[in-house]
Design a binder for these strands. Structure first.
Lengths: 157, 157
DNA sequence: GACCTTACTGCGAACGGTTGGCGTCTGTCT
DNA sequence: AGACAGACGCCAACCGTTCGCAGTAAGGTC
């Protein structure tokens, strides 16, 4: 059995991880004086299992409402807000359309194509020299992952 | 006389420059098939004489309406839009509140403090290494001055 | 200078994303 | 179990911006 269904085991394992992670985040929420509701649990789960790392409030709403139709949009905003304050997610304003959220441990910056709208993730280290220079010259500490760089992607030159 | 009122002369000179600059931009607008109206002239003048380099559509509206009260907000948006297409101004989304516009020849990037909202201008060259790295690694060409970097300014650490 | 085309205008309504107030409900601590 | 503080659904308002409309006027052409 073990050798016959490794993928299945793997999925179980991932599922287990997700639930554990969900609980950890909810605990964080509770230890901050917050309360745990089914809505919040679903929102956190949606964040952890999102196909894309960049989800809009609308994306989260769709995922959550698939299972819990009466979780209201404003609840999603409020919960995402709480999660951001707790440092669980980052909210990034990509400039066009709504903001996107992603987990802080998916640390990266964003390149947004002003033509086709494509979002490219780039690792932090590309920005390190810039961050260093800004800190040294201006005393300005860049907030990690809070901003997007606009330009033209490879395909849209 | 010349030695007695240099400032006055200087102001006259600046004023002359501004009107010349206004005309140059309006000519650009016309040569693109556009038309010149008192509203547009006032909008361009407002841009050129703005105290701050970063003006919101509201700022422009206030300045324009001081002299021409019936120039409508939507006209300002439309004109700023045209000017951006012509490459006269850049529109920058600072993330909070409205977008700001500035002349392209005031080339700079923006550091926005997420705490106090202060905007620091930084010269292009600080970003050159980053822009080079993004172009080399991702084929991504950064749009000059279209984005803002979020973080904490020196006073808000 | 009159004319005609077409762009620009003021107006106001609508948009999209987000926030706020309300009264009710429900976790959580004791 | 009871009490209190959050969180909830609902929905209206918010802000910056865009759009459609009908009217006006700029600027090339004769």
């Amino acid at each position: 059995m073990g050798a016959m269904a490794p993928v299945h085991h793997h999925e179980q394992h991932e599922h287990h991880d997700v639930e554990e992670h969900v609980s950890a985040i909810l605990d964080l929420l509770r230890s901050d004086g917050g309360r745990i509701t089914t809505g919040r649990r679903a929102i956190v789960r949606a964040l952890l299992t999102a196909a894309d790392h960049h989800v809009t409030a609308e994306d989260v709403t769709a995922a959550v409402q698939a299972e819990h139709p009466d979780v209201h949009l404003s609840t999603i905003y409020r919960t995402l807000d709480s999660l951001e304050r707790l440092g669980v997610v980052n909210r990034v304003n990509l400039g066009h359309g709504g903001a996107v959220y992603h987990l802080v441990d998916h640390a990266h910056h964003h390149l947004v194509c002003e033509r086709c709208g494509a979002v490219t993730e780039v690792p932090d280290d590309v920005f390190d020299p810039l961050a260093g220079a800004l800190a040294a010259r201006y005393g300005f500490v860049v907030s990690p992952h809070r901003f997007a760089v606009t330009g033209r992607c490879r395909d849209c030159q």
